[in-house]
Amino acid sequence: MENDQDILIRCLSVTKQYKKGENLVTPLDTLDLDIPRGDFLAMMGPSGSGKTTLLNLLSGIDQPTSGSIEVDGVAIHALSRRALAAWRARQVGYIFQLYHLVPVLTAFENVELPLLLDDLKRRERREKVEAALSLVGLSDRMHHFPRELSGGQEQRVAIARALVADPPLLVADEPTGDLDRESADAILGLLQTLSREQGKTIVMVTHDPKAAGAASRTLHLEKGQLLEAVS
């Protein structure tokens, strides 16, 4: 049993339902989950099992139909859309399968985006962006546009963008799903480093058992329910 102070995310009886045509779909059903600080958690399960829905709820992209989600003591299920946007800007970094970089901005400008939401001077922003790009090994590509980068490099830029504002929580939805093995290994290594050395809490959705193996814990979801936890 973890000490309450060690828990970053606490989900209690979380249910998510939505209507699809005439049918009521329940991708998550009364789910309870605690995620400790610094954890590197992998979530696996078949398509439609509720992995991405859970990831969206934990990161404040979506809100539950019922139940509560607390992240670092903040009841995010009760926040307004505007407050949730501000919360996401400070607390969460996102890594998507298809990188979701803005194509008309350079690597530097893409990474700088989250910092624009803070009251920082241009010089401070530049230092942070350069540090983040250096951490992912892309200092020499900072003025390149996404179309001038490989898939692995684009994902590293996306990781730098997720990291740059120093959020305690990183969420990754299939971060290696679109990469070759070598690039995928590099990305997973980077995530492990961030968890181990910077104490980031990482929640990663994956279909790939090898990617899940890089995490410190794996959760299996099926039909909106947690099946088991594997350390």
Partner: peptide
């Protein structure tokens, strides 16, 4: 649409 959603996910209103 997806790019705009990404910007919202980052925290832009």
């Amino acid at each position: 649409v997806r790019e705009i959603a990404t910007l919202q996910a980052i925290g832009f209103r």
